[in-house]
Nucleic acid binder design. Structure first.
Lengths: 203, 203
DNA sequence: GTCTATAGTGCGATAGAC
DNA sequence: GTCTATCGCACTATAGAC
C-alpha cells in the first residue's frame, strides 16, 4: 500500500470523474482548478491529461452522462395504464433518481452556461427529451379530461421545477426518507393537476 | 460628448453594478474578471476600485440588495384578510417581482457558494426570512382547514421552487404577459394546496 | 502512467502620475 | 476619478524523463 507512483489506469479514471463532480458542484466549474482535482485524486495535474483531453470535456462528459443515465432509467419503467399512473410514475422516478445524486443535479442546472455551444446543445437536447416526457403525460391527461391545468407545457415546467427543488433541502438524516418525500410530492402534484386526493396518506 | 477621461462618480458606480450583475449572471462570478467588468463599463480595471473594495464585496452587495428589495416589496403589500388571499398575494408578488429581474434571480441562487461564510450568512438569513413568510401563510391555511398539504414547510419549498422556475422559461415576447403567467401559476398553486378552482379563468 | 518543469497567459489588487 | 504600469501569483496545457 501507499506506494507513491505507478500505473492505476483502472482506478484513476473514475476517481477523476468523482472528484471533478464533487468539486464542480461545491465550488463551480470556473472556480475549480485542474490542480485541485488532481490533488483530490492524489496525482499531479499533468497526469489528468492521460484521461481527459481538457477541462471543458470533463465537465461536458459529466453532464451528458447524467442526462443519459436519467433518461435510460426512465425508459426502463413499465408502461403506465393511464395518465394518472404515468404522472405518479414520473414524479416518483424523478425524486428517487435525483435525491441520491445532488451533485449531478446541481451541476446539470448550474454549469450549463460554462459549456461550449456545441456541448451545450447536446445537453440541452437530452434535457428537452426528458422534460418532454412529462409534457406528453400532462397533455394526455388534459385531453382525457383527467387533469385540469391552465396549460400542459407550463404545468410541465412548474412540476419539473417543483420536483427538482427537492435536492435543495433534502437531508438523508432528516425526518423523511426519499420514499416519504416522493409520497408527499406525489400528493402535491396530484392536487396541482386537479386530481382529488384521499386524505393525508394514512397506511 | 465622447470625452475620454474625467470624473463620473454619479454614473460609474451604478454602471459597475449593472455590468457586474449582467456578466455574473451570464458567465458566473468566478469566470468573470474585473477587467471584463471595467471594459463593459468603459473604464480601466484600476478605476473600479474607487467604487468597490474588492470583487467579493461587489457580488455580496448585489445579492444583499436584491433580497432586501424583494423583502421590502413584500412588506409594502396590504394585509390579506385570509390565508387564501395571502397565498394569492404571495404568488403574484413573487412572479411579478422576479420575472422582470432574471439576472438578479439567477445569481441569487447560483452564486451563493461563491460568497465568503459571513456574506453567505447574511444572504441566507434574508432568504430564510422571505421564504418563511410563505411557510407562515401555508401553516395558517392548514390550521384553518382551508388548505390541504402533506406538510406546510415542505409545501413552501415546493411552491417557492415552482414559482422561481418561471424565470427559466419566461419570454417577454411570448404568448403570455407576466400577469398572464401569474394567473396561470396562481391556479396551479391554488390546486396544489387543495383549493377548489373555478374553470380556466375566462373573463 | 506519473512525475517534474515550464511556456504562455491572465488574474486581483495596488501605486503613483495627471 | 481615471489612467498606465506593475507586483506576485495562479492557471491550463504541454514536453520529456523515468
Amino acid at each position: 500500500m501507499a506506494r507513491k507512483t505507478g500505473s492505476h489506469s483502472q482506478i484513476t479514471g473514475p476517481k477523476i470523474q468523482e472528484a471533478a463532480l464533487q468539486l464542480f458542484a461545491r465550488h463551480g466549474y470556473a472556480a475549480v482548478s485542474m490542480r485541485q482535482i488532481a490533488s483530490e485524486v492524489g496525482v499531479q495535474a499533468g497526469a489528468l491529461y492521460n484521461y481527459v483531453p481538457d477541462k471543458q470535456t470533463l465537465l461536458s462528459q459529466l453532464l451528458v452522462d447524467h442526462m443519459q443515465a436519467l433518461l435510460a432509467a426512465l425508459d426502463e419503467l413499465p408502461v403506465a395504464p393511464d395518465p394518472k399512473a404515468a404522472l405518479e410514475q414520473f414524479v416518483r422516478h424523478h425524486i428517487l433518481y435525483h435525491v441520491p445524486r445532488p451533485d449531478e443535479v446541481f451541476i446539470s442546472y448550474m454549469e450549463l452556461r460554462n459549456l461550449t455551444p456545441d456541448n451545450h446543445a447536446r445537453v440541452a437536447a437530452l434535457r428537452q427529451d426528458y422534460e418532454g416526457r412529462l409534457a406528453i403525460v400532462l397533455q394526455a391527461g388534459v385531453s382525457a379530461a383527467q387533469f385540469r391545468v391552465p396549460d400542459a407545457k407550463i404545468a410541465s415546467y412548474a412540476i419539473i421545477a417543483l420536483l427538482t427543488g427537492v435536492v435543495n433541502w433534502f437531508d438523508p438524516n432528516g425526518r423523511l426518507s426519499a420514499q416519504g418525500v416522493a409520497d408527499e410530492y406525489w400528493q402535491m402534484v396530484a392536487q396541482l393537476v386537479g386530481l382529488q386526493v384521499a386524505n393525508g396518506g394514512d397506511t
